[in-house]
C-alpha cells in the first residue's frame, strides 16, 4: 500500500482515493482548525462545494481534501486558521 505523510504519521491509500477519503478511511475526521474559535473541521459536503475540508498539502494551504487525489510522498498538514498567518504584519 502506498502512503502519504499526515502530521506526525503516515496514511495508506488506494489508487484514485482523494486525500479526504483516505483520511476518513484511516479514522481521521478533522484536519483544519477554524480561524476564530479553533473548532475542528473535516469533510462536510465531500463534493468540492463547501470549502470546509481545507488542508495544507506540500506547503500550500486551502486545498480541498475532497478534490485532491492522494499521491505517494505527499506531505499533508493540519491547517490552522486561514493558513496564511505569515501574511499578518
Amino acid at each position: 500500500m502506498t502512503v502519504f505523510r499526515f502530521d506526525d504519521g503516515e496514511i495508506g491509500f488506494t489508487a484514485g482515493q482523494t486525500v479526504g477519503a483516505a483520511l476518513i478511511d484511516a479514522g481521521i475526521y478533522s484536519w483544519r482548525l477554524t480561524r476564530r474559535h479553533g473548532r475542528p473541521r473535516g469533510l462536510f459536503c465531500g463534493i468540492g462545494v463547501c470549502y470546509d475540508c481545507l488542508v495544507d498539502i506540500d506547503g500550500t494551504p486551502n486545498q480541498r481534501a475532497c478534490q485532491v487525489s492522494a499521491a505517494a510522498g505527499m506531505t499533508v498538514t493540519t491547517q490552522t486558521g486561514t493558513g496564511h498567518d505569515d501574511l499578518a504584519r
Binding site: T82, D85, A88
Partner: peptide, 9 residues
C-alpha cells in the same frame, strides 16, 4: 472577485 479569507492584508 472574492478571495479566500486572509489575515488583515
Amino acid at each position: 472577485l472574492v478571495t479566500e479569507p486572509l489575515p488583515r492584508v
